[in-house]
Design a protein around this nucleic acid. Structure first.
Lengths: 178, 178
DNA sequence: GTTTCTTTTGCAAATTTATACATTTTATTT
DNA sequence: AAATAAAATGTATAAATTTGCAAAAGAAAC
């Protein structure tokens, strides 16, 4: 939804001399389409624009996207998606946990249990985060000061567990300091 | 700066069975490089990694970047830059004004002056924002309720003015409602 | 209206990025 | 340790994106 209804924003770009009206309408439409749907290539976007009655080549689209500062980012669903400036964050918030500093140090396995090492004092909060995932794979956790014991359910492999954590706790493995 | 010094994070990925140590070190280095410098192509990144002693092909890099969810976004300086997830925002904060809702409607020119129309009551705040730019091009502004008069300095063209505003007030032209 | 200057766009080529497939490497199981 | 399974990587190629250049379209100046 844009602030100006079509009728209105049509004139929002009247620079006094009928500049680039068509181009700006196209740019608006591009923003709308990208904000609304998961677009993963310029050709795909081009086809959508053509349906709307715009005529253009992919080369122009490349320039438009550059002008609009639209980024192309990897996406689990579609492979890659175009995202509007400022919207990148939102699209990453699907996961429960945020990219906070968990104090994670390492994970190891023994006796069918996962042993997570953390910085001193960080075990509790990371264990809590893991509990909050409510994941089937995790039967329960026990936290000390700098160590967490993860008890996997029967049949859950260490690999399943690592996958789960990597998927649901982004930033756990690669955690830069702010 | 990473939380774990090299010596430490070397072992942060000991999953109990010597998994992918080399790969993870490379991934860490990629994150470091991308966070630190303005990298605009995979080949460029590859060369940097080779200097660090890593051996790999561009294909692997493409996969690594996908895994790390590194986005490629347009950048005024370098054309395009790779950005870490969560860091996109920061790289856009160089400009004074933020992507707020300015109530901007249109801009026109007459008598050598710029006439900006805004939504009712928005003239004052947008004029203030423009004043805060402290731009040479603008000798001064006068704001009513929904209209701003911009007085350009001698020799400043309407084009200069539009360029200035587009450059310094991102989102002025394309402003989606939140 | 005509001329001049600027911007936009398409075309084609260059560059950059992604991926299918085969191979190697690494982990898991027996 | 051997066999099996899974993951990572290179090679070659396909796909996608960017860009130089020339033409067209649009504004500005005259």
């Amino acid at each position: 939804m844009y602030k100006f209804a079509k009728e209105t924003y049509k004139y929002a770009f009247n620079f006094g001399w009928e500049i680039m009206k068509q181009r700006y309408e196209r740019l608006m439409e591009i923003r709308r389409l990208i904000g609304q749907s998961q677009i993963s290539s310029q050709d795909e976007l081009m086809r959508l624009l053509e349906k709307q009655g715009f005529e253009l080549t992919q080369a122009t689209l490349s320039r438009d996207l550059k002008y609009l500062k639209v980024a192309k980012m990897p996406d689990d669903r579609t492979g890659y998606v175009y995202v509007l400036p400022g919207k990148e964050q939102e699209s990453r918030r699907a996961d429960l946990a945020t990219t906070a500093d968990y104090g994670f140090v390492s994970i190891d396995f023994a006796q069918g249990l996962g042993i997570v090492k953390t910085l001193p004092g960080h075990a509790g909060s990371l264990a809590y985060t893991i509990d909050q995932l409510n994941a089937y794979e995790v039967a329960g956790t026990v936290a000390g000061d700098d160590t967490i014991l993860i008890i996997p359910r029967d049949g859950v492999t260490r690999h399943d567990l690592v996958s789960l954590l990597q998927l649901k706790v982004p930033g756990l493995i690669f955690q830069p300091v702010h």
